[in-house]
């Protein structure tokens, strides 16, 4: 699989509008859930007061004071929202782990109908959930170990090398950039490994988490840099889109009801950026994964994709091994 093909697979994955909407909808729902404790406080403070008027007009002197007073007077609501946000974020992680099963099952595969695809998605999500949870645990462990070792090493080496160097000395700055770059590379590489491990169920439905990571490591050989480049591309694209949309929403200062509606729509788009980028990245990564498949292109969705739990399934890995024997 060449890089342009994997990239194209990412773009074609975006045709899965329902999937993008599902992920965005989840994000929005969790966002609303998080903000819900603020609603009575905001209504009390801004709905029928001049403070709300100052805020929406961005009054240069009064609005900041009103916001500060809101944060103090409604501190309990703000604390409640913050707490809810953390729990909602954890729930969001679980949902992502859940959806990953369906994504792996259906993305980049030929489907006969929308209905079939939807059924396969939910079936895959349910079937691979336990596997994906285990993969997440392995990923989190690996990430924790790798980053701790690297950042600890970097800090110790940095201190030894630059303890007496002034701040922003060229060497110190270069060391900081290197640390960041390697941290990002470690995160990217482990993300690829994690995604490949989850994608392992695409070809080997019964594979366990540890075996899936081992298999993923083998499959990533020779493809790591391509994978990192793909992740970087989608991250940069998402970052740029986020920045543009945020700037548009932040800078939008008109006060009519319609303008507020437009602003809220921009915020919805803002929330859609990450799901879009993730689906696209999934498309690219799965294309890269499929290219590592010894038998070539992935099989279309069909009866093979839905093995019964007790059915004996011969993995492509074992087939490779037996053929070597």
């Amino acid at each position: 699989m060449t890089r342009p093909r994997a990239l194209a697979a990412g773009f074609s994955a975006l045709s899965r509008r329902r999937l993008v909407l599902l992920l965005t909808g989840c994000s929005l729902a969790l966002g609303i859930l998080s903000a819900a404790p603020l609603a009575p406080a905001m209504n009390d403070a801004f709905r029928d007061t001049l403070a709300g008027d100052h805020l929406i007009r961005n009054h240069p002197e009064f609005a900041p004071v009103d916001v500060l007073d809101f944060l103090r007077e409604k501190a309990a609501a703000v604390a409640g929202a913050r707490q809810t946000m953390v729990w909602a974020a954890l729930l969001g992680i679980v949902l992502q782990i859940f959806f990953a099963g369906g994504i792996v099952e259906t993305l980049g595969r030929n489907v006969f109908s929308v209905r079939e695809s939807r059924a396969a998605f939910w079936a895959g999500s349910r079937r691979h959930f336990a596997h994906n949870l285990k993969c997440f645990a392995v990923f989190a462990l690996l990430l924790g170990i790798a980053l701790s070792v690297w950042l600890g090493l970097s800090a110790a080496l940095g201190k030894a090398l630059f303890e007496h160097a002034p701040p922003h000395a060229p060497g110190r700055t270069a060391w900081g950039i290197l640390t960041l770059a390697v941290t990002a590379a470690i995160f990217g590489a482990l993300t690829l490994l994690y995604d490949f491990a989850r994608a392992g169920r695409r070809t080997t439905p019964g594979i366990g988490a540890i075996a899936a990571f081992r298999s993923a490591r083998r499959r990533l050989r020779g493809r790591l840099m391509r994978g990192l480049a793909l992740l970087l591309f989608w991250s940069l694209a998402a970052g740029a889109a986020l920045a543009l949309l945020f700037a548009a929403a932040w800078g939008e200062r008109t006060r009519s009801g319609a303008a507020v509606a437009v602003n809220l729509a921009l915020l919805f788009l803002l929330l859609a950026v990450r799901p879009i980028a993730r689906v696209a990245a999934w498309g690219s990564i799965l294309a890269l994964f499929d290219a590592s498949e010894p038998w070539g292109a992935p099989t279309p969705l069909g009866p093979r994709a839905f093995p019964r739990r007790k059915e004996s399934v011969e993995s492509s890995e074992s087939r490779v091994r037996s053929s070597q024997v």
Binding site: S34, I56, R255
Partner: peptide, 23 residues
């Protein structure tokens, strides 16, 4: 005065920022 619009708008912002944090 547009306090009602402010309440809706900034509640929307709170939800969006919470959503981005989760993402």
């Amino acid at each position: 005065t547009r306090g009602r619009a402010a309440s809706a708008k900034y509640l929307g912002w709170a939800a969006a920022m919470a959503g981005l944090f989760q993402q």
